[in-house]
Simulated scan of single mutants.
Amino acid sequence: MMPNNSQDALEYFKNKIDICFADNSQFVVDRIESDAVLILTWTQYLEANRSNHFADNLIRSVRSEVIEAAGYLSIGLVRPALYALRLQIESMLAWVYFNDHKVEWLHTINTDHDFPMRAQNLKYLSTFSARYSARFKLLEEARTRKVKEPYALLCTHVHATCIPAMPSYADFGALVNSKSEISDCIDLVAAVSEYLSDVLSAWYADAWHDFPPVIKSRIEARLGQSDLKKFCV
């Protein structure tokens, strides 16, 4: 039954969330724990082995954004989960830049200005690593994700730049998405995880032999021996 007033609308919303959580929360957590393993492994590895330890709030932010997406999806809220996934990309790329730029980091946190955007950070990677672009291309061509560039798709939803991405809700209950819609969003969790892993792998490839086993095994499974040799050169 559709709600007749605001109190009924809120109760209807709560009931839909409760049902969604009971039906889907374990499914969501299990899938995200598996599908986000690459980026979660990277955050642990980077903080322990590559960090200069002044911008690690951004690494912790990336982990928090995985938790955030899982929490939202557990109660069927796909749209805010998409925001968390987009921020995950921005935070991880910003950490890579700031980890090498302490002065800029201190300026940004003290003034709240000049936070580098994603495009700027990607340009930094391709400019200051002679092999980054070629290595990333090898991984991109052997991707398992359906979405080549997940950030672009996430931006479409965040900015509602096409009709299917524009919000259209008749009531609070419509905010709670179906299991199939939740599953589609979890596919994006996996896509973002692989995309960021590819960026980080291409940037840190000179330390290939030091990579965590799960990162190496996924790359080895995607690249043939010939391309793996090119990647590691």
Results as ranks from 00 to 15, higher is better:
5 N>A: 08
7 Q>C: 05
8 D>E: 15
12 Y>C: 02
13 F>K: 01
13 F>H: 14
16 K>A: 11
18 D>F: 06
21 F>N: 04
24 N>I: 01
26 Q>A: 06
33 E>Q: 13
36 A>N: 06
39 I>K: 02
40 L>Q: 14
41 T>K: 10
43 T>C: 15
44 Q>I: 12
48 A>T: 13
51 S>G: 05
51 S>M: 09
52 N>G: 03
54 F>C: 06
55 A>C: 11
55 A>D: 06
57 N>C: 07
58 L>F: 11
59 I>T: 03
69 A>Q: 02
70 A>Q: 13
70 A>W: 00
74 S>Q: 12
75 I>W: 04
79 R>H: 11
80 P>E: 11
80 P>M: 12
82 L>Q: 03
82 L>T: 01
86 R>M: 06
88 Q>W: 03
89 I>R: 01
92 M>Y: 09
94 A>Q: 15
95 W>V: 02
95 W>K: 04
95 W>C: 05
96 V>G: 02
103 V>Y: 09
105 W>Y: 15
108 T>K: 12
110 N>V: 04
114 D>Y: 08
114 D>E: 15
115 F>L: 15
115 F>H: 10
119 A>R: 13
120 Q>P: 02
121 N>L: 10
121 N>E: 13
123 K>Q: 12
124 Y>Q: 09
129 S>H: 06
131 R>P: 01
138 L>H: 01
139 L>I: 07
140 E>Q: 13
140 E>T: 14
141 E>V: 05
149 E>M: 11
152 A>G: 10
153 L>I: 11
154 L>H: 00
158 V>F: 08
163 I>T: 15
169 Y>E: 11
170 A>F: 06
173 G>L: 04
176 V>I: 15
177 N>C: 10
178 S>Q: 11
179 K>C: 08
190 A>R: 05
196 L>F: 03
196 L>K: 01
196 L>R: 00
199 V>H: 07
200 L>Y: 03
202 A>P: 01
204 Y>R: 02
210 D>C: 05
211 F>P: 00
216 K>P: 00
220 E>Y: 05
221 A>E: 13
224 G>P: 07
229 K>H: 10
230 K>G: 02
232 C>R: 15
232 C>A: 11
233 V>T: 14
233 V>D: 14
